[in-house]
Computed example of a mutant assay.
Amino acid sequence: MAVDNAVLVESAEAPVQPARWRLAGALWLLGLPGVVAVVWALLPTLKANEALLPLPLGAVVLLSGLQTAVLLALAVALGVWLAPRVGLRVPAVSSWLVGQPIGPALRAQVVPGVWGGVAGAAWLWALAQAAPTALQPSDPASAMPLVAKLLYGGVTEELLVRWGVMTLVLWLGWRVLQRGRGQPGKGLVAVAVLLSALLFALGHLPAAQALAGALTAPVVVFVLVGNTAFGLVAGWLYARHGLEAAIIAHVLAHLLSYPLL
């Protein structure tokens, strides 16, 4: 995968550097609605299996939300600390936090983000046509609500996987192989994009197992290939244009594909 060394993010202006604590707080709050949405989406399933729960339903819901919120905080903190060191950015949010217009930073990301979202929607539709029978819900009403896909999938997952995991992978490679000197080479960026995409795909296996009942070879291959492909697109958008471009693509992919699935 060709990634311009100019990395990573193109901007004619000097990099915007808000206070770390302000950026961390803003990004954590940005991802929090997705945490609430996904827990709310899982509530009917938890209620249906309440007798099997090791704790009262309310405690399980609270702990599930807290666990995800803590993971989000960790990912946000990693990104805030490490992203500037390897040339990765969240330009529009950073501009807003320091009182600069977000228009220029956002405009540079909209077009690539939209293209990524359209490609992602087409890919999701194609995957739906080839999905193993075990992954097709018998009751359409049990499918993940659109609001959870948009808020958690589109925003929270990007903060967890791209801002947190991909940034960490790139920083580790940069520190080990380049000894923290200069900007990360395009090979390191490509590896970080690939590894984060694979981890993104692996993170979908528990949900696939819950839906299919068992992780058969066709289910595993389908989930890994399908999610890795989009993870490559989102990772490239983050590296090349900024985190908001990856968020735009992820949100739009779910929004455009939802009526077709």
Rank of each mutant, 00 (worst) to 15 (best):
G31E: 05
G164W: 00
W236C: 12
L151D: 08
V90E: 15
G34Q: 03
V161C: 13
L74V: 15
V176T: 12
V220E: 06
T45C: 11
A105I: 03
W81K: 14
T68I: 14
G235H: 00
P56K: 00
A77P: 08
F230V: 09
V16R: 12
L57V: 10
G113L: 05
P84I: 01
G173D: 00
Q183R: 10
A73S: 14
G226V: 09
P33Q: 10
A141W: 03
H204Y: 12
E50V: 10
G65Y: 03
A69K: 01
R89A: 07
F200Y: 08
G87Y: 00
I102H: 06
A121C: 04
W115V: 09
L53D: 10
P140T: 04
V36Y: 08
G58D: 10
G213A: 12
G182R: 00
L23V: 01
D4Q: 14
L195H: 06
A73T: 12
V191E: 00
A12G: 13
V223A: 14
T167V: 05
A48M: 09
N49V: 04
E244N: 10
L43C: 08
D4A: 15
A249Y: 01
T45A: 14
V147C: 11
V110L: 15
G182Y: 02
G116W: 00
P56T: 02
A212L: 02
L211E: 04
G231T: 03
V16Q: 11
T68N: 12
S11N: 11
L232N: 08
P145A: 11
A92K: 00
L159Y: 07
L170D: 00
G231P: 10
L97W: 02
V90I: 14
A148E: 01
K186L: 09
L78S: 06
R85W: 01
A134Y: 03
S11M: 07
V7D: 15
L72H: 06
S138Q: 14
L211A: 12
A14Q: 07
Q100G: 13
V7F: 14
V86K: 00
L177G: 05
V161A: 13
V191R: 00
G120N: 04
A41Y: 04
V35I: 14
L146T: 08
A48N: 09
P140V: 04
L8Q: 06
L74Q: 03
S142K: 11
L29Q: 07
L97A: 12
L224V: 13
Q209V: 11
A208L: 08
R20L: 14
S95Y: 08
M1H: 09
Q209N: 13
A190Y: 02
L256V: 08
V90R: 12
P56M: 03
W163A: 06
L74P: 08
L194E: 04
L243Y: 03
L52E: 15
V176C: 08
L88S: 07
K47E: 13
A75C: 13
L135Q: 09
A77D: 06
L46A: 07
L146W: 10
V233N: 07
L205K: 01
L202S: 07
A83F: 02
T216D: 10
A141P: 11
A41N: 14
V36N: 13
S257I: 07
Q209F: 05
E244G: 07
V114T: 02
L62M: 10
A48L: 11
V169T: 04
M144N: 14
A246V: 05
W81G: 06
L72M: 09
A249I: 06
V147I: 14
R89I: 00
P206N: 04
L151I: 11
V155Q: 02
A190L: 12
Y258R: 07
